[in-house]
Amino acid sequence: MTDHKLTDAKLAEMVGVTQPHIWRIRKRKARPSPDVAKRIEGVTGIPASELVFVDVAR
């Protein structure tokens, strides 16, 4: 999610989630729900399937 020139705060605002949640998704510390993944896809063009089915770092 770093190639789209959006800040985490702006993307969070556009998607309707918090900035820390976007940060956790970007750092692969959390997976978005399918609904949030679809909203991120709508804003960034990143396929929702790539966001939902990533390995989460522990």
Results as ranks from 00 to 15, higher is better:
1 M>Q: 15
1 M>S: 15
2 T>L: 15
2 T>H: 15
2 T>C: 14
3 D>N: 15
3 D>R: 13
3 D>I: 13
3 D>Y: 14
4 H>S: 10
4 H>N: 12
4 H>Y: 14
4 H>K: 14
5 K>V: 14
5 K>G: 14
5 K>H: 13
5 K>Y: 12
5 K>Q: 15
5 K>A: 14
6 L>S: 12
7 T>A: 12
7 T>V: 10
9 A>H: 11
9 A>F: 06
9 A>L: 09
10 K>N: 10
10 K>L: 13
10 K>H: 13
10 K>T: 11
12 A>P: 10
12 A>F: 07
13 E>D: 14
13 E>P: 02
13 E>F: 07
13 E>N: 08
14 M>F: 00
14 M>D: 04
14 M>Q: 10
16 G>P: 05
16 G>W: 00
16 G>K: 01
16 G>Q: 03
17 V>G: 13
17 V>D: 11
17 V>R: 09
18 T>G: 14
19 Q>P: 08
19 Q>A: 15
19 Q>D: 10
19 Q>F: 07
20 P>E: 11
20 P>D: 11
21 H>I: 10
21 H>Q: 12
22 I>V: 15
22 I>E: 08
22 I>D: 11
23 W>E: 06
24 R>N: 10
25 I>N: 02
25 I>Y: 00
26 R>F: 05
26 R>D: 09
27 K>G: 04
27 K>R: 12
27 K>W: 05
28 R>M: 08
28 R>H: 11
28 R>L: 08
29 K>E: 13
29 K>T: 06
30 A>F: 06
31 R>K: 14
31 R>S: 10
32 P>K: 05
32 P>C: 06
33 S>G: 08
33 S>P: 04
33 S>L: 06
34 P>F: 03
35 D>I: 06
35 D>M: 08
36 V>A: 04
36 V>R: 00
37 A>M: 03
38 K>M: 07
38 K>G: 01
38 K>I: 02
39 R>C: 00
39 R>S: 00
39 R>K: 10
40 I>R: 00
40 I>N: 01
40 I>P: 00
40 I>D: 00
40 I>W: 00
40 I>A: 03
41 E>I: 02
41 E>G: 01
41 E>L: 03
41 E>A: 05
41 E>M: 01
42 G>K: 02
42 G>A: 06
42 G>I: 04
43 V>L: 01
43 V>S: 00
44 T>R: 02
44 T>Y: 02
44 T>S: 04
44 T>I: 06
44 T>L: 03
45 G>V: 04
45 G>T: 02
45 G>Q: 05
46 I>F: 00
46 I>M: 01
46 I>V: 10
47 P>N: 03
47 P>V: 01
48 A>D: 04
48 A>C: 04
48 A>H: 01
48 A>T: 03
48 A>V: 01
48 A>K: 06
48 A>G: 03
48 A>F: 02
49 S>W: 08
49 S>D: 07
49 S>K: 07
49 S>Y: 09
49 S>T: 09
50 E>Y: 10
50 E>I: 02
51 L>D: 03
51 L>Q: 05
52 V>S: 07
52 V>E: 11
53 F>Y: 08
54 V>M: 12
55 D>I: 09
55 D>R: 11
56 V>G: 06
56 V>K: 07
57 A>T: 10
57 A>I: 13
58 R>P: 10
58 R>A: 13
58 R>M: 09
